[in-house]
Simulated assay, not measured.
Amino acid sequence: MSEEIKAAEGKEESFEELLNQSFKTLDTGEKVTGIVTAITPTEVQVDVGAKQAAYIKFSELSDDPNAKPEDIVKVGDEIETYIVRVNDVEGYAELSKKRLDAVKVWENIETAVEEKTVLEGTVTEENKGGIVVSVKGVRVFVPASQSGQPRGADLSAMVKQKVQLRVTEVNRARRRVVGSIRAVTDEARRAAQEEVWANIEEGKRYSGTVKSMTSYGVFVDIGGVDGMVHISELSWSRIKTPAEVCKVGDPMEVYVISFDAEKRKISLGVKDHSVNPWQVFMDKYAVGDVATVRIVKLMSFGAFAEVVPGVDGLIHISQIADRRIEKPEDVLSENQTVDVKITAIDEEKQKISLSIRALLTPAVEETDEPAEIEE
């Protein structure tokens, strides 16, 4: 063999060695980044710059069994994976994106505990003493006391809801993660409260929600802060209980009547005071007109009836029937609707006299009329 041939063979061997040295060495358990070269019916092929052909089984691509490979990766994408197994004899390497994603999620969750990061997940089930939230495939247990729901609430209603939470405890060895939804909602509520108190002023309007009810009014949430609407401010009509006009959970447009930032109290109104009920009445009715009214209160001397919302008139006991009666409730009952004739209007005192009898007996003696509109 000539020296020239030997030299050429030596160069070829040297080139092959250099080429082999240029390939990455793949070791099981390591991370490796490659380029997607093909997507076949069973796997995703990846060029990782090694001698071995590398691929990812579809089952190792995502923890979502319904996910389609083409929705996760495309040819030409750079992808970071975890080396599951290397077979040098047959010249291939098995990779897993799913396992690397899981490792990253655990790392992110541990970091979230340190940095108190807010994470998002979906409630997957109600568990003994709480609920389970899936955060990127990791099960996070949220105790009932940290669910953000009232004590005794039906937690199964939260299943499939998206929630935000803070991770409070992580035990990676036992694969146990505990979180709190309440920590996030409480913080958001505090921020909203500060926002309300920083910008509140008399007359300001809010779109609120009825939070709770009492016999004397309702409490309305106006964005993390509850204000009180007294029963007298709920309606121009005379009502006995707030339940006549609203219920818990109802939206309610309100405005600020007054507030005490020090005591953290807010008085709210609903009635539109730009509307004058008396003027509405005067524009609509005159003495001699017939009106359909609602009985709102029975007294010993007669009955008060709502003519228009916010304006009541008195039907004196002598004007309730075409016969003598002992008491108004012998003929009338509260909330009953009756037709009456308007017999007198005192504009100065804003008082109205009404009569049912006038419609029953056309000729009513003037002496039967009450001398004064009583209260």
Rank of each mutant, 00 (worst) to 15 (best):
Q193V: 10
T292E: 13
G148I: 04
S274E: 12
L314T: 02
T81K: 07
L234D: 03
P309G: 10
D346V: 13
V89M: 11
K211R: 13
E120Q: 06
Q193M: 10
C246V: 08
D63M: 05
D260H: 04
D283E: 13
G179V: 09
D339H: 09
I352V: 15
T241K: 14
A144Y: 05
A243S: 14
K263W: 09
T28Q: 11
L360M: 14
T367I: 05
G203N: 10
R294S: 12
W197D: 01
V296G: 04
V307P: 01
R151S: 09
K128P: 02
A38K: 15
E107V: 06
K68Q: 06
I35T: 09
A183Q: 02
A321I: 03
A67R: 11
E12S: 12
W278M: 09
V311I: 09
S22G: 08
K351M: 06
I231G: 06
K297W: 11
V123P: 15
L268Q: 08
Q193E: 11
R323Y: 14
A198Q: 11
R174D: 15
P143W: 07
T337L: 10
I222H: 00
F15A: 12
E369D: 14
S14H: 04
V296R: 05
E375S: 12
D272W: 03
K128C: 11
Y216I: 15
G130Q: 11
Q350L: 04
L298I: 15
